[in-house]
Design a protein around this nucleic acid. Sequence first.
DNA 1: CATGAATGAGGGTTCATTCAT
DNA 2: TATGAATGAACCCTCATTCAT
Lengths: 204, 204, 204, 204
Amino acid sequence: MTDDHIRSTTKDNGLIEKRQNQIIKAAIALFKEKGFHKTTTREIAQKSGFSIGTLYEYIRTKEEILFLVCDSIYEQVHQRLEATIDFKQPSIESLKTVIELYFRLMDEIQDEVVIMYQEVKSLEEDDRRYVLEKERDMISMLKWVIVSCVPAKITAKHAELLANNIFIQGQMWGFRRWALHKQFTLEEYIDTQLFYLMKAMDIE
Amino acid sequence: MTDDHIRSTTKDNGLIEKRQNQIIKAAIALFKEKGFHKTTTREIAQKSGFSIGTLYEYIRTKEEILFLVCDSIYEQVHQRLEATIDFKQPSIESLKTVIELYFRLMDEIQDEVVIMYQEVKSLEEDDRRYVLEKERDMISMLKWVIVSCVPAKITAKHAELLANNIFIQGQMWGFRRWALHKQFTLEEYIDTQLFYLMKAMDIE
Amino acid sequence: MTDDHIRSTTKDNGLIEKRQNQIIKAAIALFKEKGFHKTTTREIAQKSGFSIGTLYEYIRTKEEILFLVCDSIYEQVHQRLEATIDFKQPSIESLKTVIELYFRLMDEIQDEVVIMYQEVKSLEEDDRRYVLEKERDMISMLKWVIVSCVPAKITAKHAELLANNIFIQGQMWGFRRWALHKQFTLEEYIDTQLFYLMKAMDIE
Amino acid sequence: MTDDHIRSTTKDNGLIEKRQNQIIKAAIALFKEKGFHKTTTREIAQKSGFSIGTLYEYIRTKEEILFLVCDSIYEQVHQRLEATIDFKQPSIESLKTVIELYFRLMDEIQDEVVIMYQEVKSLEEDDRRYVLEKERDMISMLKWVIVSCVPAKITAKHAELLANNIFIQGQMWGFRRWALHKQFTLEEYIDTQLFYLMKAMDIE
DNA sequence: CATGAATGAGGGTTCATTCAT
DNA sequence: TATGAATGAACCCTCATTCAT
């Protein structure tokens, strides 16, 4: 059983990307609302603005949609983080900036974060590994920032833990919003978390 | 979702509880392995040791099984935590003990934690609210411990945040095990997290 | 991906057989009318007298229905042939009897023969091989009858060819009925084919 | 199904024929490999060397492709047979030649024969009748050769049967190749079949 | 003439749930 | 109480066919 099906008869790569973005956008909206499993491919097609047949010209399986969604989210986060980090001149200031940006980003893409958090496990082995790899990259970036910006000596292990903490504190803002948003504005949340992180790293 | 969960057809309350516990145990094992959505009621019945017909004598819908599972998990955590907290004599020591116990507990019931974390959203509105209520209780307990045990003045808001942080750091140990267990033993994890938490609370 | 699905929850073997026979009967009627590919599983279920869900309690895939059909047909032919052949006392008379019986059988189960002839290729590799094996058995039986009943010396090769010829002449009666039935009654067909076969084997 | 097969949109008859021949060739290759039903129009278009849109400029439905294929095969056989038959000087020699040629032809176009044999039933009523008509013609030719070449008196009925036998013996060589080719070379097959046919017709 | 993106009816299959025994 | 056969809504996906460019 080879893949000799003539699938996606579509040739135009620009169109493929455009359509896939429509799909991703529609899927995020729906997954957010009812989760991956309760969302049907027909709904995704409809929300994407085309027929079920057309949907399947641009994706192979429903699962691929989830992968596309996860991939696109991490890609986004990754790029934004990378663009902010100043690899040349590490400083406490830039450390704070990065963490703050990360928190703001998590706030901005709350829905996407929730989806990722809850649905990655629905990905098949390979896809999941691929996505988690990207996550690891992100944490490495945070870790690097910590190690290089903090004046006090921080072991790799400690930096690892702190990076992981920051990582999930960011996610928590989106993921546990019903618990947190009632008590904190985004500004307060960032300030307080930063306050304790700085303390932990012996800054100021 | 409260007492009306009890089937009308079935009388013997002892039996109900016994059967439901069989179901919960089977379901946890299955959900852990393949998730809620990919587990079938037939499988749960089989693993529970009785027929599909019998299964439906003790639960009304598949979703109710998930509720039962979530409820039982939180109940467990809640009880263990409550039993440990010394409401009479708050001290730094008891603070540490509670946090440590919580982390150890999360380690012990890793699989259950993962299930909860990923599947609560599959619960219907009412059930989800009920479960999250329990979660809020837990965090309140942590918050109370912080406020009453820490000598330094900590505002309610700060305590709230720290409680939330502890809460998810515990879950993270189970939830992100593929990332953390490679780098930390449980002891190291507890020690390091405690180290930074103490620092945050100006202890020692 | 193992077969750990809990399929056919049905335990009663007698029932399974009964239901499968219903399915086979319904399928034969439908395949005869519109062929395997144009027949839907829903139609088969309906003609079988139960719902689509029930159908799938007794078969795994649509293809399995085709296999069941093919298998049952050959089984039938095989048994009838075997019951007729007198392995103890080979004689010209018994040779004639066997051939005649075979032709009459082919007449009796015309529809089934047509199905087999046209649809075996739709079976998957393994199933097809299994079915063709049964066909080979049948031809072997015919060959054995020829070799042991005909007085004149007939080489194995010639017997093989004659057996194959008889085999398809029988099938042809069902398969090319639109061409033959207009010109021959079954009796005439049998007589004339037998006439030439006897000639070929130097009998009389 | 006759001249109205020609699309109205398309004018140039030479081009039509050229394209249809491309289609037929591609279709035969594909049908041989996976059968009519499992072959998609997209695959046929691709193998034909043009787009799916263009394919539909030259055929109206997928079924028509099957018709074209069947028609072309019979046309071929018909022409080859007709060219060989010496209608002027019937002789035993020419009888043998015709039969031999027919067997060789069946060997040559084995794949096509298999396709026809298995897929004619997928044709719609009208098309099927049209194709079977051609088959009848072929058998008539064989019958005519038998009647006119064989010295012994053979009734029309007997000739009819013999013609049918020859016809399917030829097809059998292609159709049951897995059974026959292991035991016979083409030469042996022809010789042996001829041997028995001659015997049947009292020749030599 | 040629293209290929778009369509959607329809097919195979699953599985939560019921109910007669 | 326990059972498991029966149900059918609903899901994912395919592919013949059309039509604007």
